[in-house]
Amino acid sequence: MEAFFEGQSGNWGYESLKNFRQISPSVQKHLKLVYLTLCSALVASAAGVYLHILFNVGGIITTLACFVGIIFVMNTPPSENRKRLGYLMAASVLEGASIGPLFEVILDFDPRILVMGFVGTSLGFACFSGAAIVSKRREFLYLGGLLSAGFSILFWLRFASYIFGASASMFNVELYLGLLIFLGYIVFDTQEIIEKAHHGDLDYVKHALTLFTDFVAVLVRILIIMVKNSEKKRENKRKKRS
């Protein structure tokens, strides 16, 4: 893996993209497990959304239960990966149920937004994660401090909106700033996972959970932005007709 990163000089051409064979076999295997587990978690989350649409189960309880499942994943030793995978899948289903109300609203508004939002998020995730993989080793790890600071700002903005009341401008700042932060986390977390794997940390369940959290955070914000933009277009059309 070290040879792979040292062989790159910031040139992300076709040769660098196809040159993954220079990553050590153990890291290659680890990345495959991480992304396979991530895909499984996304499927489980989709099942959670479907359960909410059928039985209206999503809400505060599923959100809290999701956090409990994440805590179980983080606190169960890696030697019990079967249990941890079960906890991860359960947390993913609960996460899907928790964001189910948003999906339900979008289905009533315009189902095409769900397809376009998921495809756009998947492409963006692949691009940002791929950029972290083909870049120089540790090149994006400096983003950790900046992203933590941005996340703190996001937290205090949300806290201020609870105290002083939310406004449209404040909501837009939180929405777009949050999207930018979590896109940055995709790059940072991917490179951190590779760096940890290089040093022997092959906990693919925890690493998949990290990327799953990033993916869902980006997806939710993209869907909200798309709904807002679509609603504005409809309003403009109505004004022109009237």
Score class of each variant (00 low, 15 high):
L33T: 06
A208M: 04
A168S: 13
D201Q: 08
K83S: 09
S79K: 14
E195Q: 10
F72L: 15
R234Q: 15
V187S: 01
K83D: 03
F125G: 04
I163H: 13
V93L: 01
G96Y: 02
G200P: 08
A132S: 06
F103Y: 11
K232E: 06
V73H: 07
L183P: 00
G200K: 11
L123N: 06
M116C: 06
G120M: 12
G124K: 06
L88P: 00
M170R: 05
P111Q: 15
Y185K: 07
I181N: 03
L211R: 05
V218D: 01
A90Q: 01
P78K: 11
S122C: 15
E192T: 06
L209E: 03
L183A: 07
I71T: 12
L17I: 12
L94D: 00
G124S: 13
M1W: 05
I71S: 01
W156S: 06
M1L: 10
E192P: 00
L209M: 14
N172D: 08
N172G: 04
E104V: 07
A149P: 09
K206N: 15
I224T: 12
I133L: 09
F4Q: 00
E139V: 01
A149Q: 08
F20R: 04
F159L: 15
K18P: 03
G184C: 10
W12N: 15
F125D: 04
V105D: 13
L107I: 09
V93S: 01
F215I: 11
F128M: 13
S98I: 03
S242Q: 13
K136G: 14
S161D: 02
R84I: 02
L177Q: 07
I113E: 00
I106D: 07
S45I: 01
L223Q: 05
E2P: 06
A126T: 08
V49K: 01
G48F: 00
